[in-house]
Structure formats: C-alpha cells, structure tokens
C-alpha cells in the first residue's frame, strides 16, 4: 500500500471513529434543553408527562386520579405476586423482601450480556422456578409490575451504566431514539423534543424527560394497564414503521436509554393517561 493511501485510510478511520457515549452528559443536556423550553415548569413535574405542560388536560386527569383506574391492577398484581409457585418459592425469593425495586430497572446484566427490564426479570424469576413466562405487554405481567411500581412510588430512578457493554447498550438505545424511521420519516425526538407540546391530532406530545417514571399505564384508549413497550410499538406505528417485538434487544436498549434520561426522578407509577 502506498503511504498516501495509508494516510487517507487513517484519516477516514479517524473521521468515522464513533464518539464514545457519555450518558450523564446526555442526561444533563436534555434537562437543560427542557428547562430552556419551559422555564416556568419545575422539571420534577415532568413525571406527569403531558399534564405538566397542559393545564386543561391536567384538570381532567386530576379528576380521573380521584378514582385511579389502575387500582384494580395493583390489587390483582399484589395477589399474583404473593401466590407461591408450584415449587413453593415465590417472587420474594427473586426480588427480596421489598417488592419496590422498580427504580433499579432496567439494569445491565453482565452475566446475561444484555439489558434486563423489570418485566424480563419477572419472567426470568418464573422460568427459574419452573413456571411459564407470561405475555409481555398486558395482562398478569402488567398487573404484577403495576404492584411493584406502586410499591416503588417515591423512590428515585437509579439506573447504572457501568461497563463498556452497558454503555454500548445505552448508545444503541440512544441512536434508536434519534433515528428517523417509517414512511413518515420521524424520530422519537421529532415529536417529544423538537415539537414537544404541539398538537398532534387530538393529542399534545410530552417531554422525553419523565417518560419512564410512571409505568405501567392505564390508558383510556386501552381500558387496561400496559407496559411501556406497548407505547413504543404504538409510537413506531404512528410513523408507519413496522414495530419491534416486545422485549426485543432493540426495545430493551431503548428502554435502558430512555429510563436513564429520567435518572434521579421520582417514580409515580402506575399512571393513567388518555
């Protein structure tokens, strides 16, 4: 190889060398972004999603929260959580005495080499005890995680990104979030950052910050509680992209990134939304 080629090669490899992701710098920059956009709103309010920025919708929502529609799911979830498995063990053998562990999820599991969401952890616990895995998005699994979320209320999200592999998973989730997809050519930030608060058909879009604080959610449109990845699928479909499978590596990394963006915020799930 001629030396000029070698230099050219070196130069191009320097240009495309991936920038090492810095989750904490990203999180702080995102907070700055919204603080500038909404100087009068306390960022902690963003745990309430769109209701932090829309007074009229907030009124209806506060009324709805008088009789929280997710209450039944919490009760059902509690009963399921405390029902022993056929082998005599229970969820407490996996999660410890306090079911309020949601603030630690998703976590990066070095041994498994991937992101483990709370739902994955619940199903792993079942399988390790000889039980069948539950369907991901709605039903009993969403009820159990509703109960665990309720028990976690008031705790601050505490996601850790400590190994190079964990940083890589975060970086993949981040890239997914900012990548335009679908026939309508939108990325997540297009609606939730650049055009945050604007009307989209009958809805206003909420800030990215706080997106992970309140799951599972009872949606009026669903008439049941569902997990966050159901919302991911819906937002993908909105831009006419083919959605991804629940708990696929793609969505687990996305949830890892998105939850880290809300690190330090108080959990207030389960929640209710239109």
């Amino acid at each position: 190889m001629k030396w000029t080629n070698l230099i050219a090669l070196l130069l191009t490899s320097m240009m495309v060398a991936p920038v090492q992701a810095d989750p904490e710098a990203d999180r702080l920059a995102l907070r700055d972004f919204y603080q500038q956009k909404f100087p009068d709103i306390d960022l902690a309010e963003f745990q309430n999603g769109v209701y932090a920025i829309d007074a009229k919708m907030r009124e209806q929502w506060v009324e709805m929260e008088d009789f929280p529609p997710y209450e039944i799911a919490i009760d059902e979830g509690e009963a399921l959580y405390n029902t022993p498995f056929a082998n005599g063990k229970s969820y407490a053998d996996c999660f410890g005495d306090d079911p309020g562990v949601k603030h630690n999820y998703p976590l990066f599991d070095q041994a498994r080499g991937g992101v483990v969401t709370l739902e994955v952890a619940i199903n792993n616990c079942r399988k390790e005890n000889g039980e069948e895995a539950l369907p991901w998005l709605v039903g009993e699994l969403a009820e159990i995680s509703s109960y665990m979320a309720y028990q976690s209320r008031g705790k601050s999200i505490d996601i850790k990104i400590e190994s190079p592999e964990a940083v890589a998973a975060y970086a993949e989730g981040q890239q997914f979030y900012y990548t335009r997809r679908g026939q309508l050519n939108f990325d997540c930030s297009g609606c939730h950052q650049q055009q945050v608060g604007q009307n989209l058909r009958a809805e206003r879009t909420s800030p990215t910050l706080g997106h992970a604080t309140h799951w599972p959610v009872y949606r009026g449109r669903w008439q049941f509680v569902g997990n966050i990845q159901k919302r991911f699928q819906e937002c993908n479909i909105q831009v006419r992209a083919v959605p991804f499978k629940a708990q696929s590596e793609t969505y687990r990394n996305l949830e890892y990134f998105l939850t880290y963006m809300s690190n330090g915020m108080e959990l207030n799930g389960p929640g209710s939304r239109r």
């Binding site: 920059a29 981040q174 335009r180 990325d187 930030s189 650049q194």
Partner: peptide, 23 residues
Amino acid sequence: KLSELALKQAESEKSLWQARVPQ
C-alpha cells in the same frame, strides 16, 4: 421502490441522528 427508499433512509440516518442529540 419503497424498500429502496427505506434502505436509503437507513443509510443516511446512520450519520444524521447524532445532530439531533441535545448538547
């Protein structure tokens, strides 16, 4: 034709996404 457009989107987004991350 649609697949070609989608693949073009995939290709160009490989570098474009980064500019959208708040700094």
